[in-house]
């Protein structure tokens, strides 16, 4: 790509899909971390490091930010964005990896991403592909799903250090997570960090650190409407 992709252009693409800037919170909460991930972290962006990266959007809800970032980077076409949710469109209200090669998993039903990542990491380990990494984006509400905790415990105990889970914490878990989410990962042996969703440099630092253990980064997101 000759021109440096613009974060503002990507944001405008997202608003084209969300339709209303005031009601874009679900999508917006993931926008910043996706932007940093795709422009500063995921190989081949950082092609000086060998190995491949995968990104599993486990939280398939509100994927407009994801599509916007992919479109700004040329992974999907502008016409795909214009066809958002249409019968013949490739970008639906939940993403389908069979329709778009750049989308690494199909999601929408919550709680599958961490388990899929566990299998991918185990396959890589068996292949000796130890430099590969898989980033998994989950929401704090999604962690209500018991299937995520089957994976989180097993990933810790099987020491699958190629996995980096990013939790978007926008306080959407109905029964809350008393004491916070972080401790629950830490007690399973994960390496943890946290950043504010507006702080791109901090997000980049969190996502590029190499701990030799499974990693979790909790992204705190405050609603742009200021009503949280």
């Amino acid at each position: 790509m000759s021109e440096r992709p613009s974060v503002e252009y990507a944001r405008q693409l997202m608003f084209r899909m969300t339709g209303d800037e005031k009601h874009a919170v679900a999508a917006e909460s993931t926008f910043d971390v996706l932007w940093v991930l795709y422009t500063r972290v995921l190989r081949p962006v950082r092609s000086e490091v060998s190995g491949i990266d995968r990104f599993y959007l486990s939280k398939g809800h509100g994927p407009m930010a994801y599509y916007a970032v992919l479109a700004a980077l040329g992974e999907v076409e502008l016409t795909d964005v214009l066809q958002f949710g249409a019968f013949n469109g490739r970008l639906g209200h939940h993403p389908d990896g069979e329709l778009v090669p750049g989308i690494h998993i199909s999601s929408g039903s919550l709680g599958h991403g961490p388990g899929l990542a566990a299998g991918t990491a185990l396959a890589w380990r068996s292949q000796g592909a130890l430099r590969n990494r898989v980033f998994v984006l989950v929401g704090d509400g999604e962690l209500d799903e018991g299937s995520t905790w089957e994976a989180i415990a097993a990933i810790g105990r099987l020491e699958l250090s190629s996995i980096h889970v990013v939790v978007i914490d926008n306080g959407s878990a109905s029964l809350g997570w008393p004491g916070g989410l972080m401790g629950r990962f830490v007690s399973e042996g994960w390496s943890s960090s946290e950043a504010d969703s507006a702080d791109h440099a901090a997000i980049e630092r969190c996502l590029t650190r190499n701990s030799g253990r499974p990693s979790v980064t909790v992204i705190r997101h405050r609603s742009s409407r200021g009503d949280t």
């Binding site: 690494h104 299998g119 299937s147």
Partner: peptide, 20 residues
Amino acid sequence: FGIREQLLIDAAGGAALAGA
């Protein structure tokens, strides 16, 4: 995986996505 059948199947899918 221990007694974790949801993980058992999810992980099978993830392993297949990596060529296993």
